[in-house]
C-alpha cells in the first residue's frame, strides 16, 4: 500500500509542478516539491527520491512532448549556441539529461528538506532496509538522524 503512496506522491509532484510552472516562474516547482515533503513526511531517502523522480518525470515528459514535432532539431541548435562554436557541440539529448538531472536534484533536495523540517517521526518505515542501501549513494547517512 505504501509503495502506492510513494508512486502517488511522485505523480502528484510531476503533475502539480507542470501546472504551477504554466502560470508561475520557472522555479515554482520547488514549492510543490517542498510542500509534498512536508505533507507526505516520508523517510528521508524516500522523500528525496519522490522529489527527484517527480520533477524528473515532469522535466522529461514536458520537454520530450515539446520537441516531438521537430525531432530535437531546435534543441540541437540550442546545444550549439551553448557550446559557443565548439567542434563537438552539446547535443540536444545531452541537454535533455542535464536539464532533467539538475531539475530532479533540486526537486529531491526540496522534498527532502520539507520532510526533514517536520520533526515528527517519519510515517514510512516500510522498506527501510532498501532505503538504507539506497542512501549509500548519498553522502548524508539519513539513518543517523532518525
Amino acid at each position: 500500500m505504501k509503495i502506492y503512496s510513494f508512486i502517488i506522491q511522485i505523480i502528484a509532484i510531476a503533475i502539480l509542478s507542470w501546472l504551477i510552472c504554466l502560470i508561475a516562474p520557472w522555479w515554482s516547482f520547488v514549492i510543490i516539491a517542498f510542500l509534498s515533503g512536508l505533507i507526505a513526511n516520508k523517510h528521508g531517502a524516500f522523500s528525496f527520491w519522490a522529489g527527484f523522480l517527480g520533477i524528473g518525470i515532469y522535466y522529461l515528459t514536458s520537454s520530450t512532448f515539446s520537441s516531438k514535432g521537430d525531432g530535437f532539431e531546435f534543441v540541437n541548435q540550442i546545444g550549439k549556441v551553448l557550446s559557443s562554436g565548439a567542434e563537438n557541440p552539446i547535443s540536444g539529448i545531452l541537454l535533455l539529461w542535464v536539464g532533467t538531472i539538475i531539475f530532479a536534484i533540486l526537486g529531491g533536495l526540496f522534498t527532502l528538506s520539507g520532510a526533514l523540517l517536520l520533526s515528527n517521526e517519519p510515517s514510512n518505515k516500510i522498506g527501510s532496509g532498501k532505503a538504507k542501501s539506497r542512501t549509500k549513494g548519498l553522502k548524508l547517512d539519513l539513518k543517523r538522524y532518525q
Binding site: F74, V98, G99, F103
Partner: peptide
C-alpha cells in the same frame, strides 16, 4: 540557466511546430 533549461519557460517552450 534555470530559466533557460525550464521545460515550461526555457528553450523547450520555443519549439513551435504546427
Amino acid at each position: 540557466i534555470g530559466k533557460l533549461l525550464s521545460p515550461s519557460h526555457g528553450f523547450w517552450s520555443n519549439i513551435d511546430i504546427q
